[in-house]
């Protein structure tokens, strides 16, 4: 395995580390790893570093990098919108990884808000052959709502849980599935509706890309193993459809308690 830290991009403003397998066998598909929220490119608990080295041991090259203005990367001019800038950054990272490793197709690993960027980029660049969304979009079902209420009552008691629920309902107007577009006009953090999400996934699968979703249990809105399939039962994802990996219910209770604000 060989790791090279480099500056790349049109102005050399982006900073990343390319991890190339040392053996003769090298995959033609490279993995692109980037920021999760404001955490710099190493990812929460160094997940990107560890994932990159683990991938290299199986022959898969990768690049982990900081988007413009985050981590070690420099700011850009601001001439483009945030969404456009993120897409250009990801495209630059794919170019750099291609130069360093010879890979011509790429998979994106999007962690939390990184999944939002990956989801948008995968629709625009045909070189993206794989998309892995980690704790990105989830949609409530009847059972997930019941589970959530049960958790709340178990942890805080019926009276406190009920009064909190009433306070929330009174404080907020009823929201649909889609959050409003951000104040700065960016589309990035708008959660797509189920239909939009399913349509994009089906389009990517039809293009030959693979899509995977992982739910760690960090958010109590996704709280049982079959929630993804229950959500998208109508769309009947066929062969090549998203592979869902979920932690069992029993292992996520602690994280439910600790993640509550």
């Amino acid at each position: 395995m060989r790791e090279t830290s480099l500056a790349f991009g049109p102005d050399g403003n982006l900073v990343g580390t390319v991890c190339v397998p040392g053996g003769a066998h090298r995959a033609n598909v490279g993995m692109v790893l980037f920021n999760a929220g404001l955490v710099h490119r190493i990812g929460p608990h160094r997940i990107n570093v560890r994932l990159a080295r683990s991938l290299a041991s199986t022959g898969i090259p990768s690049i982990r990098f900081d988007l413009s203005g985050q981590g070690d990367s420099g700011r850009r001019t601001g001439a483009e919108s945030f969404d456009e800038q993120v897409f250009r950054d990801i495209a630059s990272a794919m170019d750099a990884l291609g130069r360093e490793s010879g890979a011509s197709r790429f998979s994106l690993f999007g962690f939390c808000s990184g999944g939002v960027h990956g989801f948008a980029a995968a629709q625009r660049d045909a070189r993206i052959a794989g998309l892995l969304l980690y704790d990105t979009y989830f949609y409530p079902t009847v059972l997930s709502r019941l589970n959530r209420y049960a958790l709340s009552i178990r942890d805080r008691g019926l009276v406190v849980a009920a009064s909190d629920w009433i306070r929330r309902k009174l404080a907020k107007p009823p929201a649909g599935e889609s959050a409003p577009v951000g104040a700065n006009g960016t589309e990035s953090f708008r959660t797509p509706s189920r239909a939009e999400f399913a349509e994009v996934v089906l389009r990517l699968v039809a293009r030959g890309s693979k899509v995977g979703v992982i739910y760690s249990g960090s958010f109590n809105g996704y709280n049982y193993a079959g929630q993804f399939h229950d959500t998208f039962r109508r769309w009947r994802f066929g062969p090549g459809s998203p592979a869902t990996t979920c932690r069992p219910w029993a292992t996520r209770r602690r994280s439910c308690r600790t993640s509550r604000p």
Binding site: L6, A7, G12, T17, D72
Partner: peptide, 8 residues
């Protein structure tokens, strides 16, 4: 300002 990433 240019930065130089290194591996030591």
């Amino acid at each position: 300002m240019a930065v130089i990433p290194l591996r030591l």
